[in-house]
Nucleic acid binder design. Structure first.
Lengths: 215, 215
DNA sequence: ACCTGAACACCGTTCAAGT
DNA sequence: ACCTGAACACCGTTCAAGT
């Protein structure tokens, strides 16, 4: 059957299959996806432009698959909610992360999501010249914490005597509890610091306005 | 020439070749390394246990290749110096990062480095139950900013009108300058927040001691 | 002890052939 | 328009053969 009466493939089907395999911790390359869909690898090339195109499809579908209802009243609620969702997302797809970071994207849902965040931060009063950097900081955190959550329990296995590390490894929380503690510390640290930064910016702005009125 | 009079391979040579290829942005797999060393892929298996072993060798050599003189007087100087060095390290080996994160290690130089950090933080007065999480936060940070530094200039390419993102992309710094601004914001945010956290911990400790004396 | 050569089971990608 | 089958240039890994 060289050609079915109705197409059995589509970019959506391919992207979804890739995500399903990734979520299951299995390989999600061209061959693996084709096998999973009961089709030959070369068939995929009628719908997508190779592995890069598949990754881009997965990235876009990943965003719509995590339809967090983001609170728009306060920037800090927005950021915290977003970070929590992204952390889960990255943790569920750890092997996809390296393919996502550091690659250019122009897919509309992704651009829209970042445009939303940029707008919220600008409205909140963060200096425009810093906003892209703040977004990069948030991205770095989400990725880092997602990977931390996905990491195995025993990242370090000391063979010899240690001064501190071995003791801490024995006495500390493990697994999900440790990862969650890490995330809570990280997120409170981050939000506190950004709040301080915003307050300082506003104060400077107010001083500048007052000085202008004085003259 | 099936066997040379003196060995032409060793774990050190193999690890170093892998790092050199990675730093050059070239593939650094078993085949690529063998080609680079003028040897057959199967030869490597006399010295290392496959690709995983090579990655572990690269990890260990990466640490000794960045012999930062870490200031031990103040925990914050130590952390800042370490983060700067690690960021450069990750930025120079972006494709190695996904192979390093989330994998167990027991190689002594790596363990030693983390034991050092843990000891400094414990001595500084951070609560023992939080130190592993703080280290994870620092790791997440270094990785995130290293990848940010290695990322292409145009991560987003909006095709349609945006509310804020497009404007910021046009007006903001680019390339190295933008990445450095991101890092400086991130690092000041992080250190400030940890300082506050440490101060709060010490205050609580002092109150507890005072209360104990009262009784 | 250490490098080779052949073999195996994988990749991603191209393209003419079939309907 | 869309799936196939064969082909290509890659992977990582094993193992008997050679010195």
């Amino acid at each position: 059957m060289p050609r079915p009466s109705s197409p059995i493939l589509s970019p959506e089907i391919i992207g979804e299959a890739g995500l399903a395999l990734s979520r299951a911790g299995e390989p999600f390359g061209v061959n693996a996806i084709a096998r999973h869909l009961g089709v030959r690898p070369s068939s995929l090339y009628n719908h997508v432009g190779g592995m890069d195109g598949i990754v881009e499809l997965m990235r876009a579908r990943l965003l719509v698959a995590y339809p967090v209802e983001l609170p728009r009243e306060r920037w800090d609620d927005y950021v915290v909610t977003m970070l929590r969702a992204q952390r889960e997302m990255y943790a569920e797809h750890p092997r996809l992360v390296p393919l996502l970071v550091g690659t250019t994207t122009s897919s509309p849902p992704v651009i829209d999501a970042y445009d939303d965040l940029a707008t919220i931060l600008a409205t909140a009063g963060f200096p425009e010249g810093e906003i892209l950097s703040i977004i990069a900081v948030l991205d770095a955190f989400a990725i880092g914490f997602g990977l931390d959550l996905a990491a195995p329990d025993d990242i370090w296995q000391p063979q010899e005597e240690t001064r501190t590390l071995g003791r801490l490894l024995e006495s500390s929380e493990r697994g999900r509890a440790r990862a969650d503690l890490t995330f809570e510390i990280g997120i409170s640290v981050l939000i506190d610091a950004f709040r301080m930064r915003l307050a300082a910016t506003k104060k400077k702005g107010a001083q500048a306005s007052a000085a202008a009125v004085d003259r």
